[in-house]
Design a protein around this nucleic acid. Structure first.
Lengths: 128, 128, 128, 128
DNA sequence: GTGGTCTAGACCACC
DNA sequence: GTGGTCTAGACCACG
């Protein structure tokens, strides 16, 4: 279900967040689907329950999942993109940095565009 | 010269690295140009010298700048993109995450492409 | 009869308590009126009977309802406000927190007063 | 600095959040002021550092404080109320419940209004 | 069974 | 020194 690298520089709880978001975006997780329980996932991927809890709480704060007391955690209904101005600016900065790194790697502008295109197509493939 | 936000979530030393790299990419810093000394920059932007030292060390490790003992630090000659496989993979993951975030913000795939295009054009403008 | 949101942050049994209290306050439930049985309500709103049982027990403890063995549960006669000092202090703290949240939302003191007034008028409307 | 009741029903981390927010609202904490460090506060009020950390992180998420890496945590500049529609609705429900509780305590509508007025005046007094 | 909170104590990155 | 992350293990509330 999850592919966690404890040694990576991005903290484990963020890896979980990203992977849940990706699964929701590509449709592998549908609204209403149940996520593994904190304890369950904790034994599955050998991560401390607190770490998973932290990831789930952040996902709930972002309205990507909802927790039902005593029942479990579920993918939220319709996430509806908001185009929040602040987050939009953060995204621009994030991609700006990515572009600079790409240029440093020797990619041309055309190659960068192709890469982006390719990455979006990969998303479609994974969802099948 | 530098625009540092100490309260930002990206550590100061990384902000310095990013800004140097950006300046080199857009040509505001040319190979051979002298960078301010650690001490000089430290008083200019009111940052702990150790922090600047750390940024310069990392930049040198990435062969973006070179320090000549007793002379100062300079922008390295020709950075020539290497398309290192490992860094390439890191870039893919980085942009992959950016795309997911963009989709969550409600951007369409076309809008994402436009955004990338727009960001690359901005780089040209800044270099003038 | 009841409007329960299982995904809400307030536990279900509290939602039931609040809604019974509200109905009594606005007169939709009169002293002597019969409440649905635990089993009945349980199938109606698809909630675990234990949860409803818990709500009824708490309501009985607060002397808002009474259960007559073998007959059912009924709204208690005259609830007569007691102005219990302890509960009064709890109320003050509760509203105190509400006011701070309201100020953080950008409401002026006048707007807060208006909001309170408005909420009390809504209670009257619902009772019609 | 803080008045924490570990036995209370509201979790400790929420008590800390509320008290910081109150101090900021009444001006006892001004933008730019430094909050006690996690460790410092932890020994002061005899609470586990993790608990304080959790409170601080939530406060940062709400943009009430900012943390500067390696320096500490500070009260954020200008919090500017946003009147977010969703939070506004949550506030209405919160106060709605408070009013019902007040009526149950035997308060008249006039008394409730007076109580609100009184609570707002107390805020002014505490700030002196 | 579920998630929510808290403690104790550790290690790391940043300045 | 600062905050950020993680583990281990405990207790409680909810359904």
């Amino acid at each position: 279900m999850f592919n966690i690298k404890p040694a990576a520089s991005t903290p484990i709880y963020r890896q979980i967040i990203e992977q849940v978001k990706e699964k929701v975006i590509i449709g592998l997780l549908q609204p209403g689907d149940k996520l593994p329980s904190v304890r369950e996932l904790s034994t599955q991927i050998l991560i401390n329950p607190n770490t998973i809890q932290k990831a789930y709480q952040e996902l709930e704060r972002q309205k990507i999942i909802v927790t039902v007391l005593g029942r479990g955690t579920f993918v939220a209904e319709g996430y509806e993109g908001k185009k929040d101005a602040e987050q939009m600016e953060a995204l621009r900065e994030y991609l700006h940095k990515g572009i600079i790194d790409a240029l440093y790697l020797g990619l041309s502008r055309e190659e960068i565009k192709k890469l982006i295109h390719q990455l979006m197509e990969e998303l479609d493939t994974r969802s099948e």
